[in-house]
Design a protein around this nucleic acid. Structure first.
Lengths: 195, 195
DNA sequence: TGTACATCAGTGAACGCGCGTTCACTGATGTAC
DNA sequence: TGTACATCAGTGAACGCGCGTTCACTGATGTAC
């Protein structure tokens, strides 16, 4: 049943892609190898032909998830003024759509507290991801010194991660919306002053 | 080996207290009943004399953790001007001490993404906890209408939860500190304007 | 107040289950000649 | 270009292990008389 090199690499990619969704949706610990191999249309036994361990896959998925996140954001921001781009990024991150589809969204928000307890490799991947997302915002502040722009973006990203996480925890639907809306309003206002 | 009513209630309290530390430190899923009963000086078999399920304990621990968190904050804020109280709350939440001792700190930050996927009871306890912590800050803004004060506090709390979570994920020690410091600076500045 | 019995906190073994990982096996693919 | 053999992607059973929960048992506590 050996597969061609191309098929093999496609399979590997399929596992990573679908696993990155599963991890964000159900959590790292709650997603079993059997589940994610099934999500890729395979049985669990073949996992170790592609990866050394679950931890290695988790780290790789974190990177892939961030990259797809960055791409989504860039699409939302394209063809806009600086002001418009910032508004689009914030609105997209703090949307109810993002809140309700953690599997397609930001892995930092979706797995925050689990990442904080993860192994070094995963945390390094997450760190790179955080910096990529922060940079996406920081480079909008062309008139600020790079350091100041990065610091501004770090705080804004913290607010977005916190607000999205809280909006997913809270049982009161109104409060959940308020969290997203108020954070968005605050960020658009604050960040406009830094353009 | 039956114990007196007082001993029984003391034991129950001891389980809740030590479990709330374990859950924050190691995560909800990663903490086994055997572990937390051992942390209370007992064997796992007796667990169900006190609780209906693990989930019930998780929810109760969330409430207890928030209450102890509120108390810590109130102590830090006592005997201060409004400005000083706000600074003390923010500095305390965003301290490296808090970052490095998740077991003694805010359960929302320590378990954020796990809480978002938890059962209804746990999420309700977390929601009440969030509102308590937000209220601690909101009541400092005496000159703002209550709604505006609450919204201001919600955003500030989002920033604190996000920044603390990120500072725990990040592998670069300098970046971790920067996250805490910049969020603190931003919050003190922003919130001062609302007094 | 004393006694006889019911209650029940805590123990430790056991339950069924799912986990991450390993392994013998298969047969199609890749490679050396 | 064709052939013989080595490689290895994927399968499905099995590994040891730890999980949440249950249960028979114990003996001190609580209670009814």
């Amino acid at each position: 049943m050996r597969k061609s090199k191309q098929e093999t690499s496609e399979t590997r990619q399929r596992i990573v892609t679908s696993a990155s969704v599963e991890f964000r949706q159900n959590g790292i610990h709650q997603t079993a190898l059997t589940d994610l191999m099934a999500a890729a249309g395979l049985t669990h036994g073949g996992f170790y032909r592609h990866f050394e361990s679950k931890e290695q896959l988790v780290a790789e998925c974190c990177g892939v998830a961030v990259d797809s996140m960055v791409e989504t954001m860039e699409v939302a921001m394209a063809q806009r003024t600086t002001q418009g781009a910032i508004e689009a990024l914030v609105a997209s991150y703090l949307s109810t759509r993002h809140r309700d589809k953690p599997g397609m969204g930001c892995p930092i928000s979706a797995q925050g507290s689990e990442l904080a307890r993860s192994a070094g490799g995963t945390r390094m991947a997450a760190t790179h991801g955080i910096l990529k997302l922060v940079d996406l915002l920081a480079k909008q502040f062309e008139n600020l010194p790079p350091d100041a722009a990065k610091e501004q973006a770090l705080v804004a990203f913290s607010t977005m991660v916190g607000a999205l996480t809280l909006s997913r925890i809270v049982t009161d639907p109104e409060l959940s919306i308020t969290l997203l809306e108020q954070a968005e309003r605050h960020l658009v206002q604050t960040l406009s002053n830094s353009i």
